[in-house]
Amino acid sequence: MAAIDTQARPVFHVEDLTKVYVTGEVEVRALNGVDMTLYEGEMAVLLGPSGSGKSTLLNIIGGLDQATDGRVEFEGEDMTAFGARQLTRFRRRNVGFVFQFYNLIPSLTAWENVALVTEIARDPMTPEEALAMVDLSDRMTHFPAQLSGGEQQRVAIARAIAKRPEVLLCDEPTGALDSKTGVVVLEALTRVNAEFGTTTAIITHNAATRRIADRVFHFHDGKIVQMVVNENPVPPSEVVW
């Protein structure tokens, strides 16, 4: 998506979102009144220092966590009212996750890690197709221990996209990788975003990554302090860090 298309359908709509963690006697306000809308097909990058609330927001819209206050809508539906069972179904059908540490199942091969998700999805692509999207057709029978970090992360991306999710949520997907490998991973993500129109949100510490995004959200102290529209996103191969 070249530029922000205000005609696009909102996927997530977040209003005055608050999340308070109470650990012992300490109260941490991880999100403090966040308003945000993510549109269909856009590529959003969430930037900010550690503890600024990026991951908390991603976890809440991903259905891993629940807000203390405020409202989250997914395609017009109020997610704050979801119970555990509905959240599980929501994750199963609509969301693909990519994590910093890949979270592959060590006892399953690359193909099987993807098949794990396609087995429970409604209209998945085949594991072969998903792995081809991330250029891993020749590594399908390898176990995670036999793959490099970049390859493992690409398997994780293949696993996340194989069920054709509406949204792809990535928490520091390149955080554990060197820059060259990181670029390959980002290319896989942009390719999925372009080909399937999957709404993608990427959390990163790496400010250079903002250049591939349609919009960049800056977080600080549990708030979005700035939102920048990127008129000319560049392909990952042009990003240097």
Partner: peptide, 24 residues
Amino acid sequence: PARYHTLGIGLGALHSVFSQLTTM
């Protein structure tokens, strides 16, 4: 990382009988 091995039977055979969860 933990190293795993196939169970000594063909990949196809395993997949046709067991789900990924069972294979795990």
